[in-house]
Design a protein around this nucleic acid. Structure first.
Lengths: 190, 190
DNA sequence: CACAAAATCTAGCGCTGCTAGACAATCGAG
DNA sequence: CTCGATTGTCTAGCAGCGCTAGATTTTGTG
């Protein structure tokens, strides 16, 4: 069935186009600028076409967030390779995490700040997200001491997330970010 | 001029009514339910009246946030009184902070999660906010060791804020919150 | 009581996410 | 090759949003 196959391919193509356009628009002008009308105009289709691919705008945001989880996991994977002991690995992970958030703020928003219908704290959470957490767990578990590794990792993650969000919201001056990361890593590695 | 004085009082009264109604509505149904129309209906005035008190909706949110800072500072002040050493004080502060956020999620949102025109990281920041930070600084500075106390406190705050936001967004299961606080306090107090 | 000033409301703008129903393109059967 | 049905897409519109200009009512004063 070559005909329907081609259609399917074109449809998948357009699906990707919607997601990447939404992401680009969000990264360029912020998520508040990503409206269904503007998005439709950019992909050169009418609004209802969006709704034949996604249940609504939120689902588009979720799709972007999913891309983000995959990319963050990739970045963390690369960073976790540090061989100079757990402390170096944790520093690299922390830096990578914060840099990711700084470099792609809209992406980070989609992943963590905007309301999302994505499952999270249970086993239905998307694989890349689980992998990202597992990468943190690998390195942090080594320095958790008596503390349950999962719990320890959650607290570490919260520290990073807190730094990222408070800085981005203007609640922390962004001058000393790297020193704050150091302080956090020092705390974590005792 | 008793007439204009009475008017002024009534105006101030209505001002408070707007803020408290916005807050109550947000706490009951979330900020997305706080629209200028609904708010106007609740206070039994028409929409434009809101704009004779506030530049726009954001300024109303800021006013609610300001109330929140004052209340959080009060709560932290009460908690900081622990006399069993810095560690007990820090535990009390951390618990108080998280409980505040859990108990008044909409208020916490107004303070930290919603876009705000409030000055923050500079000397123009509202007094209660500065006091809240100073309270944290008082106790945390004692255990900061070599680290600059301000920086240390910022990292601690980020940890608390991260725990709060990740939990509330469903990113962390809310079962082990108090254990996570313990872990964080353990880290901070070495 | 009449008038000026102040306070308040009605009505509307341009925008949002979303959708019903009209229309056009495409495909399979005869 | 044509025709009817199916699929795909678009136009137009709904209800709601933050916000505001201008009409209207209420108020205090001479």
């Amino acid at each position: 069935m070559p005909v329907s196959e081609r259609k399917e391919r074109e449809r998948a193509e357009r699906h990707r186009l919607i997601v990447s356009t939404a992401r680009a628009l969000a990264e360029a002008e912020g998520w508040e600028a990503v409206t269904t009308r503007r998005l439709a105009e950019r992909i050169e289709y009418s609004q209802p076409v969006l709704y034949s691919h996604f249940r609504g705008k939120d689902e588009i945001v979720d799709a972007v967030a999913l891309e983000g989880f995959a990319e963050l996991a990739t970045a963390l994977r690369a960073a976790a390779g540090a061989t100079d002991g757990p402390r170096a690995a944790i520093t690299a992970l922390a830096r990578t995490y914060v840099e990711f958030a700084e470099h792609s703020p809209a992406l980070y928003d989609a992943m963590f700040n905007l309301r999302s219908g994505l499952p999270f704290a249970d086993e239905a959470a998307p694989a890349p997200l689980r992998e990202g957490f597992a990468l943190l767990l690998d390195s942090l578990g080594r320095v958790a001491g008596d503390v349950e590794p999962g719990l320890f990792t959650e607290v570490a993650w919260a520290g990073l997330h807190g730094l990222v969000t408070l800085t981005r919201a203007g609640r922390l001056p962004d001058e000393h970010t790297s020193r704050r990361i150091e302080v956090l890593v020092d705390l974590l590695t005792g």
